[in-house]
Write a protein that binds this DNA or RNA. Structure first.
Lengths: 213, 213
DNA sequence: ACCTGAACACCGTTCAAGT
DNA sequence: ACCTGAACACCGTTCAAGT
């Protein structure tokens, strides 16, 4: 909220800026999905020539990276809790919350190799307590990566961009039962349904049991 | 290798078929990457009008789903081993091998919600031993899903479509050390490097310790 | 320093026509 | 049943021109 060098409020209406572009782009993704994003459509929404965007953003790929970074920046800062387990759990939930806040944009975070160092604070917040608890740094990093891999995989599923054997349709259940595969048939009622919340907690618990007992 | 109703060998040269299209598409992805895939370019490679593809494939999205299923079909059949742990480990390695066989196509498998029931045999191969060992089906499914989430997340990273804090560049190391974040700086040498093989084994071991002790 | 618009080389897909 | 090609409504980005 620092005043902006006396420029008139025009700035936030017609004045373009990387920030305004990224915010509008995220809104576009939220409303119409990732596939609907195009430089031209985004420019139309901003009331601007498509080429004007290139003054603030390095092309479409960079635009998508920018959106991903906006999401990452929304991970709430986490102060170390009473023990390792609760801080790690809080961070995992914070990451999940930030990503699920914009489900249609989520694949950008989960899928792109981000070059920048956004999201380094959350890493510090995990690594700090682990090191303080006496974990050797190498093992701490392995642990961090295992949890992160799990988070990325579950979130991809939650956001419905990854394979499940579900979405609870009646037919799905019948297909599974008729598959001719005995174990699949026996577990069909559970395969046909997927409660993301409990799947998330289940996997996270297992990992934290192993890492922060 | 069943003979094809006496049609001349022409079939595999100019004759189009879903199979030939998918094989050529996978080759195209392997050579030029996912972004290079277009119906028109694929048709050019097949020496055919772009519109001819639509006689065998339902559009571009369906084409990409088809490629993903080709990859999934390459998961080697796994016969149950001596114990739970080795069969589950074998399956995880089989999945990883199939995906890493076509790294540039991998995101298709890891990222798309597949409608079809390909890859149901691997599920049977995991669930069977779990149920036989007395696991309640609900818990078996949770376990399966936790492992799958981890696999998807790690593979996404291996295939370089997901965030890391590495690829072992000298500068990366220095950036991390200069980040001002003490734990990040302390663990910098390990953060700057990522051996996919050992990360994979580490995470898998933890999960299997919890699921098949 | 920023914005514009024409132009280029592409896309996926519909549709009517051919064999 | 399968293949074709013109046509439509889009793309991302370069480049020269404006202010």
């Amino acid at each position: 909220m620092t005043t902006r060098r006396g420029r008139p409020p025009k700035d936030s209406d017609t004045g373009l800026s990387r920030d305004r572009i990224l915010r509008e782009a995220l809104a576009l993704v939220d409303e119409e999905g990732l596939d609907a994003v195009s430089m031209r459509k985004l420019a139309r929404r901003l009331g601007v020539d498509p080429m004007s965007l290139y003054n603030h953003v390095d092309g479409k790929e960079a635009l998508l990276d920018g959106i991903a970074e906006v999401l990452l920046a929304a991970i709430p800062a986490t102060t170390p809790g009473p023990d390792l387990r609760t801080t790690m759990s809080a961070l995992a939930h914070g990451f999940r919350g930030a990503v699920l806040g914009h489900p249609r944009a989520a694949p950008l975070v989960l899928t792109r190799r981000l070059a920048s160092l956004t999201a380094l604070e959350p890493v510090e917040a995990v690594l700090g307590p682990l090191l303080a608890a006496g974990y050797p740094p190498e093992r701490a990093v392995h642990g961090l990566r295992a949890v992160l891999a799990f988070l990325i995989g579950t979130l991809m599923r939650e956001v419905s961009a990854a394979p499940t054997f579900s979405h609870g349709s009646r037919e799905r259940l019948e297909e599974l039962e008729a598959s001719g595969l005995p174990a699949v048939a026996a577990a069909a009622p559970y395969l046909a349904v997927c409660d993301h919340e409990t799947e998330f907690e289940f996997g996270l618990r297992i990992l934290l049991d192993a890492l922060a007992p």
